[in-house]
């Protein structure tokens, strides 16, 4: 966003209202990012609070040349990695291929809820490097170039990871009973 840099400049010069404006503007995207990264747990509000605390503590490290959102997501991503390390959240192997135990129910609202839960589970089972790329590109709409700066990985590698992540999601959803037909209906 264009005037993020202006708000950061005002905030670095001691204007607390500018910081509050940044928080109000970015709290929702950060919460979405954290929810997709760690799953819909009760931890999200506390982690979101922690992200903005870290932003406040490290405000002098932000350089105006960089994009504020990239810097913000780098802080959020480090927090997610710390949390994952603490909770020793590990990659869960793909379930055995085969007929799904529970297919999508008939009722539409219920079906959407079930699909949402299946996506949570599938994202949870995605290895962290793939999940990072998928979430940042799909949910946070970051370009591969911004992601390359954020993650310190070449954009070409990230593009490959994104392709792998999307295909892995397709496999996981199929394994969870959400194949092509169920998703199309």
């Amino acid at each position: 966003m264009g005037d993020d840099a202006e708000l950061v400049r005002r905030w670095q010069n001691g204007d607390p209202a500018a910081f509050e404006a940044l928080v109000r503007r970015w709290q929702r995207p950060v919460a979405r990012f954290l929810t997709r990264m760690i799953g819909p747990s009760g931890l999200v509000p506390d982690l979101c609070q922690e992200v903005f605390l870290r932003v406040h503590l490290h405000r002098h490290r932000y350089r105006a040349q960089g994009c504020f959102s990239t810097w913000l997501y780098s802080i959020a991503l480090n927090l997610v990695r710390d949390t994952a390390r603490r909770s020793a959240r590990s990659y869960v192997a793909l379930p055995e291929e085969g007929p799904a135990a529970n297919g999508p129910p008939a009722d539409c609202a219920w079906e959407r809820r079930e699909l949402g839960e299946a996506i949570d589970v599938a994202l949870d089972r995605l290895p962290l490097p793939l999940r990072e790329v998928l979430v940042l590109r799909h949910y946070q709409s970051l370009s591969f170039e911004d992601m390359a700066r954020l993650l310190g990985t070449p954009a070409s590698t990230l593009k490959s990871r994104f392709a792998v992540a999307l295909r892995r999601m397709q496999q996981l959803l199929t394994a969870l009973g959400w194949g092509e037909e169920e998703l199309s209906t």
């Binding site: 928080v23 709290q27 929702r28 950060v30 919460a31 979405r32 929810t35 997709r36 819909p40 999200v44 509000p45 979101c48 609070q49 903005f52 959407r112 699909l115 949402g116 996506i119 949570d120 998928l134 799909h138 949910y139 999307l166 999601m169 397709q170 959803l173 959400w178 092509e180 998703l183 199309s184």
Partner: peptide, 16 residues
């Protein structure tokens, strides 16, 4: 279809 399905999730409202 998978990509569209990814949007079919809800997010919690968080106020910092």
């Amino acid at each position: 279809t998978v990509r569209r399905a990814l949007d079919d999730v809800s997010f919690p409202e968080v106020v910092v």
